[in-house]
């Protein structure tokens, strides 16, 4: 007779490890996608556009952009993972159903999925930091403090993505979320330019969304400064997570366990 040998706090671990193992098999394309694209933006826009722009908020444009691209990459990586990959495991491969016939609950599986989203954001940020460091775009070792924030950002956007996955009927559905939420956030949260010149309404809107707050913490850390209002920024990311994750769990339970 077997019992529940795993602590309820660790039941997510084998599911997370399964995702790690699959990721390791497909390492080449995975890394290229997560790192190549932000790197291209950084080089082309940072140096290309930057040569016309000069300094921005007292920084060379490429330095300004580097910290923005770190956040954008963390957001995109987690969002893709929480939508396309999670949807595949939920609805195409029935991977989750297989896990649920073992002694795992849907909550265990989804905790693993959002921690995995955070892990992937973490990995992509590590890679971009290394490259940015080699290009001399990072001020000092304080930049390493962006890593735990990247993890949290990934968990936050992963949780939000799972809500969309829960109601998606096919892959095309994700375009709504990307076009209506992720892309506007990417353009209006201060990744490419400071939002201080934008209309008041846009600024307020940006501050209600999580990406702005991640950038507000990560940018100072990467340029050798000290972020302000850290508690507020962290609270916003945590609040989004605490709303999105239980909602995703409920919707996905309803979808596959009825």
């Amino acid at each position: 007779m077997n019992g529940l040998t795993m602590s309820p706090w660790l039941r997510w671990y084998p599911v997370w490890l399964r995702n790690v193992r699959v990721w390791r098999k497909l390492l080449g394309p995975a890394l290229l996608g997560n790192i190549g694209e932000p790197l291209l933006y950084l080089l082309a826009l940072g140096y290309g556009l930057g040569s016309f722009l000069g300094d921005l908020e007292g920084l060379p444009y490429v330095v300004f952009l580097a910290s923005g691209m770190v956040c954008a990459s963390a957001m995109n990586t987690a969002s893709f993972e929480g939508m396309y990959s999670a949807y595949t495991r939920m609805a195409v491969q029935d991977t989750w159903i297989g896990m649920l016939t073992a002694p795992l609950s849907i909550r265990d599986v989804l905790i693993a999925e959002v921690i995995w989203c955070g892990t992937k954001s973490f990995i992509s940020v590590v890679a971009i930091l290394i490259i940015a460091g080699l290009l001399g775009l990072v001020a000092d070792v304080r930049a390493l403090l962006v890593l735990p924030i990247a993890l949290l950002l990934g968990v936050c956007f992963g949780s939000m993505a799972l809500v969309v996955t829960a109601v998606a009927r096919n892959y095309d559905f994700f375009l709504y979320y990307f076009t209506l939420l992720i892309t506007p956030m990417l353009l209006l949260s201060g990744v490419f330019f400071p939002i201080s010149g934008m209309p008041e309404a846009v600024q307020v809107g940006a501050k209600l969304l999580p990406l702005y707050h991640a950038i507000a913490m990560m940018r100072p850390l990467m340029i050798g400064g000290v972020p302000q209002d850290v508690l507020l920024h962290l609270s916003v990311l945590i609040a989004y997570t605490l709303i999105a994750f239980p909602l995703a769990t409920r919707l996905i339970s309803k979808r596959i366990l009825t």
């Binding site: 007779m1 077997n2 019992g3 529940l4 399964r18 699959v22 491969q93 029935d94 991977t95 159903i97 297989g98 016939t101 073992a102 002694p103 795992l104 609950s105």
Partner: peptide, 17 residues
């Protein structure tokens, strides 16, 4: 969840990884 420690399931649709 405890019960599922001691059962094996072959589902109608294969869900091998």
């Amino acid at each position: 969840q405890q019960m599922r420690c001691n059962i094996g399931v072959v589902p109608q649709m294969d869900n091998l990884d």
